[in-house]
Every structure is written in structure tokens, then in C-alpha cells.
Nucleic acid binder design. Structure first.
Lengths: 335, 335
DNA sequence: TTGAAAGCGCTAACAT
DNA sequence: ATGTTAGCGCTTTCAA
């Protein structure tokens, strides 16, 4: 079963391939009649454009590459959905690659996308990434770049970010207003701006109340369930134990709840917990977890919109910030 | 910044592009010395193959297309990871598209993949899909096809399946052995073979005990949390109410637990619940949910392996079944 | 062991 | 409004 090409259509209609090509792309310099003729014949023969040939000729393609750390994270898979929502109807195709939070794989992914001549690249950096030659290479080649969530601020590109600062600020403020006295923070790695911002939001809220951050228990690099569990156990051995924590991630918060249950501490009566990310499980556990919601889907649509702007030629380097929202559930007092 | 082509390398080395092409692909008909020379010059100039041009010329590409209902489902995103684990090291690139459980989008996705001249297609059908011309078109064009999980048995292709039957059988058997008397089943749509099999496994276990399926409460098309909730409420109004249910999905089981909590029925003392899929939340909720685990990652590696076999030319149509495993947690008695 | 030449299917500049 | 021509970068047959 041979594929139908524009030459086949041209022959059947006694016109040249150029005319068919123009007709198919809706060029107005082809008569309406011919355009209809071509369209009908194309449908009749079951013609399907060979986009490979087209992009070779045009020197660019309508495929957009996207590099994410992990596809099976709620946040990323929803950003992807948002991106597709915009990109597909606009005629673009998404090529998704996972870096697996691995620097080498991230480099390879970029190389693969370049070899495939993608029209643009969307990326959220791996935690391991500390050097940026591979990303700069993309920019140097003139390929439109959009960074999101885990971005490098020094690279020239559109950047779409979550409002981590405000989310963290509101979460901490909420714990304070709820009457908790000694509020701790389980932070992520400071080298990632997202976590750094959450830390800063926490600090702002604490200081605004005239309290002293030095008095707060802050654990760094504590984002897994296990780390959360261990840290609350350790905190309880501390002489100035906290009575609430704001966690930079829901998994850490989950670990904290595990530990508190084991210690026989009641939540939210004796201890308040707020997480970050609104993972699907956060409303399913007991008690349900107060958390900060990131609008992943909207982030995706904004990412895609920025990419299209870039593809349309305008040097679109705007930095956009997506608002976050505090969701109060049962792991903290409603106040 | 112009891209380096094999012509650039050829000119610098005073050989022809053909030689460079052969050298780069490791053809032994090129002298070792020339091959080294070419390799070094390629690295020096930063050459990167233009896979678009190569696949146009070769008439096939090393890109594999994959159509899944939704990327943000635990099961599918893990199958994808498994596929990538095998495909990427073998030099293939995965192009992922979501059908969003929508028939039209599924058709479009297939069309897009064909237009991109993918070397093969991997698919798990949408729930809506009832006609199969688009899939048959793939087979007719001679493009290797691998179906997984949600497959159409009549289409000639490799098929990788979960052992839904045994999983369901073991789950139901477990409820019986635990001493529950009247066991119900929340089923999925019967038009999907996976759900049909789960139903059959349930029936087999029931009948094997000399019980009568007609006595069991079976609700069809009940896989969401809400549907699970509603059905348990309805079941409790029933004159021969069940004291256990095997659910074809974890979300329905979650809804059942919601309903039971509201009804003041204690689990597992008065009522047993087993789900299916081992969704991440199933071990986080209270009580933790007994369920049937599907090995999504392994399914992915098997899918990819089957695809490679097909690409290597052998007509590889084997049907493979991945074992499932019962995980007993606190929503049913351990027996 | 290497070169010459053709062509994959399409688009676009330049005719007419 | 349509045709002519060239070529994107690569692979591959045929020839030397």
C-alpha cells in the first residue's frame, strides 16, 4: 500500500505538484476551483501530508519538544495536558521526554530534540542541573525556549513560574492566625528557586508578626515522606518543640502526620500541618491536608501560549507568575 | 549559527558526503582511518545528524508513536516510563499523544502519527472507541502495531495484557476466605475487555464456592468515586445487602469507603473492600485499601520489547499476559 | 575503499 | 493563476 503524494494528485488532475502544494495550504493565488478540485481528489485518494518532507524543506517543524523531570508526577502531567490543550489545536505536535531528574539524560534529551529539528523547546530543569551549556546551546541556535517552574533566571527565555512566595506566605500566616505558637518549616533544597521562594515566604510571614526566624525549627532538604517522618520525630526530642509546621511539599507533610499519629499528638488540636502542591492524596488522607494549590493546567496553557508567541517571531521573553491558592482542610484550624 | 551537515565535514576532509555518511554509520567498507578522521572532525565541528533528512530518505523513522487515554493516570504514566526505559537506549524516540478518552481525538492522534511517519505505533484504546478503521489503517500500511491493556482482540498485532482475570479471582477468593458472606461487585463497562475479565474472575471465584452469582449485587459501569459512593448507599437500602465488595477500580472502592464511613459501618470488621489498580492513594487512606497491583512499568518494558521485535521485521504477534498481585491491607481481614 | 548521481516529498523563488 | 526549477540533508545503488 503506497502512500499518496502530491505528485499523485497532480498527475490525476493534470496540474503540477506546486499547484497542489499551494492549493493544499490554502494559497489564494490558486483559483478557488482548483483548490476545491485538489481538496476533493486528496480526500478521494486518502492523501496525508508527509510532514517529514515538509519540515526538511522548510527548515523548521511544527513539533515542539518538552523536557520534564518525570511524567508520572501529578504536577508535570497536568502541565503537559495544559500545553497540549493549546498546542494541538494550533497545529503543533508535542514531543515529550523525561530527564528523570538526571543531568546526563537531560543533555541527551535536548540533543535528541535538536536532531529532530523541533521548532521550539519547553523545559523544567532537573534537580541535578547546575551547568547550562546545553540550554544555552538551544538559545544560540535561535530555537525558541520556554522555561517553567524549575527555571534558570539567567537564561534568556520566557519563564512561567508559580507564585511560591505568596503561597508559602499565606500558608504560614494561616498557621499563625490559627493560634499556633511555634511554627517550623520543612524546606526543600535551596538551590531550586521554587523552594527558596517558599522559604522566603515563610520567613516573611514569621517576621511580619514580630517573631524571630532563629527561634523556628527549619529543616532543609526535607521533601520526602520519610524525611518528614524523621524530622518530626527529631523535632519532638527538641527542647523547644514546634506546634505546627509548614512543609514545602505534601509528601513531607504526610510523613509528619505519620509521625504525629505515632506520637499520639492530635491534629489539628495540638499540632497544625500545611503542605504544598495539593497532591491528589491530600484530600483523601485522614485528617485531610491543608495545602497550597498550584494551577498546573493553567501553567501549561500559559507555557504553550508563550511558546506560540515566540514561534510567531516576536522575541517574547516575558516572565509570568501563576497565582497559588491556600486550601484549608482539617490538618489545621479553620480561622 | 548554521548547522553543520555531512557536506561540511566532507569538504574539510576532501572526501565525498557519501563517505562521511558511511563512516558515521560505522560501515566497514570505509577504512578505519577514514572513520576516525570523520568521527573526530564531526565532534570538532559539533555535527549533529539531521534525523528528519535521514528518515525522509530512508522512508522510515526511529520515532515510535504512542497513544494513551490520559497521561496523568498513574497506570499509563508508568507504562510510558517502562517503554522509554527500553526504547531510548535502543535509539528510538517516543512521541506521546493523549486521546483524552475521546474517539475523535484518538483518530486525529493516529493521523498525526502517520503524517509524522513514525516507525511504529503503540496504543491503549479510549473507552469511547467502538469502530476500528483508524487502527486497521495502521496495520494495512504495514506499520508495526502494539496494543496494550485496552486492546481490540480482532486486530492483528502484538497485545500486552494484564492478568485481570486472576487478579479479580484472587481478590474475590480472598474476601470469601476472610469470612464475608454476601459479596458484591462494582464493575466497569463490559465493552472493555479488562473490566469484562475482572467480572469473569469474580464470577469464577463465587461459583467455585458453590455460591450463586444471581444472589450477588453487581453494579455495572461503576468506576468513579462518586459512583462507588452512590452504589453502596443504594446497596444498603437493598433487602439482601452485601457485607463485602470487590471493586473493578480503586476510585470506586474509595467511594465505597466514604459511604460506609457515613453509614457508620466499620471496615474491615463489618464490611470488606478490595479495589483494583493499587493507585498511589490506596496505601495512604484510612483504612488502607486492599487492592490488586498491576505492574505498569513491566508492562511498558514488554510493550517496548514487542515493538522492537516487530521493527526488526519478524511478524511478532504474540499475546503476552503480565501477572497481577493481590495486596491485602486493612480494608479486608488478613486471612 | 571511495566517488558520482539520483531521489525521498515537499516548498518557494522565479518565471510566464 | 499556474508551471519550472532547484534544493533541504541524507542514504544508497552503481560504478570505478
Amino acid at each position: 500500500m503506497k502512500r499518496i503524494t502530491i505528485n499523485d494528485i497532480a498527475k490525476e488532475l493534470n496540474v503540477t505538484p506546486s499547484t497542489v502544494s499551494r492549493a493544499l495550504s490554502g494559497n489564494t493565488r490558486v483559483s478557488i476551483k482548483t483548490r476545491e478540485l485538489v481538496a476533493n481528489k486528496a480526500k478521494e485518494l486518502g492523501y496525508q501530508q508527509n510532514v517529514i518532507a515538509a519540515s526538511l524543506r522548510k527548515g523548521r517543524s511544527d513539533t515542539i519538544g518538552m523536557v520534564v523531570p518525570r511524567i508520572n508526577r501529578h504536577f508535570f502531567s497536568n502541565v503537559i495536558s495544559g500545553v497540549e490543550e493549546i498546542l494541538n489545536p494550533a497545529g503543533y505536535t508535542l514531543l515529550i521526554v523525561q530527564s528523570g531528574e538526571n543531568f546526563i539524560k537531560e543533555q541527551k534529551a535536548i540533543g535528541m530534540l535538536m536532531a529532530n529539528h523541533v521548532g521550539g523547546i519547553i523545559i523544567s530543569l532537573s534537580v541535578q542541573t547546575k551547568t547550562y551549556d546545553h540550554i544555552n546551546g538551544v538559545v544560540k541556535r535561535g530555537i525558541p525556549l520556554v522555561q517553567f517552574d524549575r527555571v534558570n533566571p539567567d537564561i534568556e527565555s520566557s519563564k512561567i513560574l508559580n507564585d511560591n512566595f505568596t503561597g508559602a506566605y499565606l500558608a504560614t500566616k494561616h498557621l499563625i492566625k490559627s493560634g499556633y505558637q511555634r511554627i517550623g518549616h520543612l524546606a526543600g533544597t535551596r538551590s531550586l528557586k521554587a523552594y527558596e521562594e517558599r522559604y522566603r515566604g515563610f520567613v516573611k510571614a514569621i517576621e511580619e508578626e514580630g517573631r524571630n526566624v532563629e527561634d523556628c525549627l527549619v529543616y532543609e532538604n526535607t521533601i520526602t515522606r520519610e524525611a518528614g517522618y524523621n524530622s518530626i520525630k527529631k523535632a519532638y526530642a527538641h527542647n523547644s518543640r514546634p506546634d505546627a509546621v509548614f512543609c514545602a511539599g505534601d509528601y513531607a507533610a504526610l510523613g509528619v502526620l505519620d509521625g504525629l499519629k505515632e506520637l499520639g499528638v492530635s491534629v489539628p488540636e495540638e499540632f497544625g500541618v500545611v503542605g504544598f502542591a495539593n497532591e491528589p492524596f491530600s484530600e483523601l488522607i485522614h485528617p485531610t491536608l491543608s495545602t497550597v494549590e498550584q494551577n498546573a493546567f493553567e501553567m501549561g496553557t500559559r507555557v504553550a501560549t508563550a511558546m506560540i508567541k515566540n514561534l510567531e517571531g516576536k522575541h517574547w521573553e516575558k516572565e509570568e507568575v501563576i497565582p497559588t491558592r491556600l486550601i484549608v482542610r482539617n490538618s489545621s484550624w479553620k480561622k
